[in-house]
Amino acid sequence: MSAEVVWVWVGAFLTLCILSFLYRDNPFYRFGEHLFVGVSNGYFVAFMFHRVIRPVMLEPFWGAVQTAGESGLSWELFNPIAPQNFLLIIPGLVGCLYFTRFIPGTQWMVRIPIGIFMGYYTGLSVPAYFEGTVFPQMRGTLVTQSDFSAAAGSSSIDGIWALVVLLGVLGTLSYFFFSREHKGIWKVGAKTGIVFVMVGFGASFGFTVMARVSLAIGRFLFLLRDWLGVIS
């Protein structure tokens, strides 16, 4: 029996272990689940060390130490965008503060990296959100004369669809307006908006179910073709 055949049997057994959850929780599912979690965690630790910590942090810092030893200190070694620099020690130390929760009396220090991390990402995401999402979508939603113009490659049908998109966006914005009760004009807007939202969900649901069905087919192909060999 070749090694490949052995691994096909192992794969088939683990697939059946996980699929057995469709019946109920059982020892085979628990075995598969714990093995999956354990292997994933082991892989994650190895991946983070070899693909992140070593190439992004340790090697550039150690490179700076070696360069400084050979040719002395220079400002280039403190350039934050240089491939080898000493400044990496700062985020490295900040990151190490996550481990202070294991040292009694210093647990409060864990809030420093959390604060920096959250503040940095919030500051980064707000302008990026405006630039990458809000502004382009708003620009695309504005109805212009060119949407109806044959000279711009559009037709009156395109113009009508542009108006439908505008109506949907206005309605959806109305639905997600929290400072007014859904009464009067806001109720009309919100009702229109939720219709658009649900139509969108329906389309998305069908699309995603198709993708999931193809994943299931892939698993059953593995069982019936690679393992049992009953189909070619």
Binding site: F135, M138, V143, Q145, L170, L173
Partner: peptide, 23 residues
């Protein structure tokens, strides 16, 4: 943004003013 969409579209359709430069 809701107001901008409404009045921007009206300005473009009736007066031919492109409000896209605001965005």
């Amino acid at each position: 943004f809701l107001l901008l969409l409404v009045f921007g579209s009206i300005a473009s359709l009736i007066f031919g003013i492109d409000a896209g430069w605001l965005l």
